[in-house]
């Protein structure tokens, strides 16, 4: 066995080991602590878990490529809320009144286009101004959220379309619609990052930007495309979730960016870019959802859940650093 292989294996497989650990812990602890009679590892419960992972999970796929690219996007929660409003409100617009249920695809397309446009705006600013993506999207997070409140004040925007709800609640081959979307997005993004020139260049840019520039890779357009993709996915996440719920509060999607980043980081994507895996992000999303659900199962309240997840995140990053530390001759900074 070559040196470094063990630590590599630990790093790549860690998230799945963590998930297994969670399952065992909650199953055992659930026997003693749970108020409900149902076992934790129940089929229905697990299916629900997949479905509930979808809103965060779909965005997390986009965040993975953004972070591999060496950027970050804090505005996804706000984009999510805007797209939800576009989706629900456009169905009530008078110009679409004659369409009947055909308004549904129109509303979807509008919502998705809104997401792509907002993402493109982020990407364009990052590209053309050279300002750090953290600052740009911090600004757009506040700005986009402002738009949400300008639209309808503190009031929720509601529109329930029963055809839409039926579609969203449908189960195909046992899996919910939202789960299917999550799986399809995961597969598509995996394909994008591993099989296309765009994806490989995104890795190269995040890994060694100077080398990429010297090799003639145009950094800006790649970053902009990735911001458009994450905008699209934030919108898709909103489409999937609000098709079912039918009502959006102006605060919806707040802190989503942090949950998403937590999932991506748990999945092992480097904060500095260049390394990360879509499949591991999928694991990170499941791990967080399991933790939330499992802690609720054994009777912990929301505050405890947040505390535990925060602690785990720090421990994971600490372990990652320990595994990555190179030889002792490294310059101490």
């Amino acid at each position: 066995m070559k040196p470094g292989m063990l630590s590599n294996f630990l790093k790549r497989g860690a998230i799945w080991g963590f998930i297994a650990l969670e399952l065992i812990f909650f199953t055992v602890a659930g026997e003693y602590l749970s108020l409900s009679e149902k076992a934790f590892m129940d089929v229905d419960n697990m299916l629900l878990l997949f479905k509930q992972s979808a809103p965060i999970g779909i965005i997390a796929m986009g965040m993975t490529i953004i972070m591999i690219n060496g950027n970050i996007d804090l505005s996804v929660g706000a984009i999510y809320a805007i797209c939800a409003i576009v989706l629900l409100d456009s169905m009530t617009w008078p110009i679409f009144a004659g369409l009947g249920d055909m308004v549904i695809p129109v509303a979807w397309v509008l919502a998705l286009l809104a997401g792509v446009a907002l993402g493109a705006l982020n990407g364009l600013i990052v590209w053309k101004t050279g300002v750090d993506a953290f600052i740009v999207t911090l600004g757009s997070m506040l700005g986009y959220r402002g738009l949400v409140f300008m639209y309808n004040g503190e009031q929720p925007t509601s529109h329930l379309n029963w055809t839409l709800v039926d579609f969203a609640e449908a189960q195909f081959l046992g899996l919910h619609t939202a789960t299917w979307f999550l799986l399809i997005v995961t597969a598509a993004i995996w394909f994008l990052m591993n099989r296309t020139v765009h994806g490989r260049n995104a890795y190269a840019i995040g890994d060694n930007r100077e080398a990429a520039v010297n090799a003639g890779i145009r950094v800006g357009p790649h970053m902009m495309i990735n911001f458009m993709i994450i905008g699209f996915l934030a919108a898709l996440s909103a489409v999937v979730f609000y098709s079912e719920s039918g009502s959006v509060n102006p605060n919806d999607g707040e802190l989503y960016e942090l949950w998403v980043i937590t999932a991506v980081v748990l999945g092992g994507t480097k904060l500095t870019g260049g390394a990360g895996s879509i499949i591991s992000t999928f694991g990170g999303v499941l791990a967080i959802q399991l933790l939330r659900k499992g802690l609720a199962h054994i009777g912990a309240d929301t505050e405890t859940v947040n505390l535990v997840i925060g602690l785990i995140l720090i421990v994971v990053l600490f372990l990652d650093r320990q595994l990555n530390i190179k030889g002792k001759e490294e310059l101490k900074v």
Binding site: V197, R200, N201, Y203, A204, D207, N208, E210, A211, A212, N214, A215, G216, I217, G274, A275
Partner: peptide
């Protein structure tokens, strides 16, 4: 001037895959 996480092939043809 190499991208360490990528393969040898990708580095040699960086920008010209």
């Amino acid at each position: 001037s190499l991208a360490e996480e990528l393969t040898v092939a990708e580095n040699i043809y960086l920008g010209e895959l």
